[in-house]
């Protein structure tokens, strides 16, 4: 009888830890800080629309935007038309499909248009982790040498483009020519 009573704390703990373990599966809070001035991290990840492996070598030797997006991300919906518009103006945009479901992501591009040169599939969030992505959307401006020059956390709209990106983009474009 007494012996059994001694097991009570253990049982309570097991129940509690089951909940904690389930709790871990929830959306984690994110890590701060991406580093402007750092080279774009090395990676090898699949393409969203084709059967191939992408790496930094697939980046064109030009100024590019890297846009982190996902279908679960609400703000990305708002941002998407702006990306379409930038692509139409000739801006090179590379998509980083972040912690997403591939099929839904493909459908998203069909429905909303595809402004991206290609899309890196980062299902585990490993590249996002190296970049210090805190969520989606985020946008990085990468120069022709592959160095991150500017970062936007949150929606990239016309106002943000004009204020934070356009001048630098034009300047880098001039340098790379």
């Amino acid at each position: 009888m007494n012996r059994i009573a001694l097991f009570v704390p253990l049982v309570l703990f097991v129940v509690l830890s089951l909940f904690l373990f389930k709790g871990l599966e929830r959306d984690p809070a994110q890590l701060p800080s991406a580093l402007v001035g750092e080279a774009f991290p090395v990676f090898a990840l699949p393409d969203l629309l084709e059967e191939r492996l992408l790496s930094t070598e697939d980046f064109p030797s030009q100024v590019v935007l890297v846009n982190i997006w996902a279908t679960w991300c609400f703000a990305c919906r708002i941002e998407h038309p702006m990306l379409n518009q930038l692509a139409a103006q000739g801006v090179n945009i590379i998509g980083l499909n972040y912690k997403d479901q591939t099929q839904q992501a493909q459908q998203w591009l069909q429905e909303r248009g595809n402004p991206y040169l290609f899309n890196i599939v980062d299902q585990q969030g490993s590249l996002g982790f190296d970049l210090g992505v805190t969520g989606a959307p985020e946008t990085y401006l990468i120069d022709a040498q592959g160095i991150i020059r500017q970062r936007r956390v949150g929606v990239l709209d016309q106002a943000v483009w004009d204020r934070e990106f356009n001048d630098l983009y034009q300047q880098l474009l001039g340098e790379s020519r």
């Binding site: 809070a29 991300c73 609400f74 969520g135 956390v153």
Partner: peptide, 18 residues
């Protein structure tokens, strides 16, 4: 308090609502 612009609750609920 941190730089997260989208608290998980907001992100989750929004995508569910969507």
């Amino acid at each position: 308090h941190d730089e997260n612009y989208m608290p998980p609750e907001v992100a989750d609920t929004i995508s569910e609502a969507y």
